[in-house]
Amino acid sequence: MHPETSPPVSPEAPRRGFLAKALALGCGGLATLAPLGAGVWAILDPLRRTSGAAAFRPVTDLAAVPADGVPRRFAVVADRVDAWTGFAAEPVGAVYLRREPGSDTVQALSATCPHAGCFVEMNATGTCFRCPCHNSAFTFDGGIVEPSPSPRPMDGLECRVAEGGAVEVKWENFYTGIAAKVARP
């Protein structure tokens, strides 16, 4: 409609008009704040979540890790909670284990690529690691083969051999894409 049809303007009208406008915006804004605020509060909830403290998990027996320096892949099994669902003893990731000839020390590497998180595999000839996503290559002890999109070597995981020969790995996830190896909370 047209401003010409507006009612006659009294002298104090502009100030009253300003007050009314401010009040209207204030009330409307306040009323909308409740659903919006509740929504934003709830949607930020994932920021409070952590995947729990890293812990040693039995992965295999020492005998199953070939003593020829060539890595072999093993699943890491752990209890896992996904929001409301609890999974008992589920595969949660994979590690490569290797040991040098004659050695009882096991080296563990996470199979997660430090570049952007793809699953690192063995190359076709079995001579080194290769990531299928952007071709990062790594030596068997995890070192970078240049040129490499990956900013750092494969992530080593703490590993120990318990009495009785169970190989236990401290399972952790790390931020990808950065040069530093930083564990996710």
């Binding site: 509060w41 709830a42 909830d45 409070r48």
Partner: peptide, 9 residues
């Protein structure tokens, strides 16, 4: 029960 502010939402 779990989400912050979920009860309010």
């Amino acid at each position: 029960h779990d989400m912050a502010g979920g009860w309010l939402l």
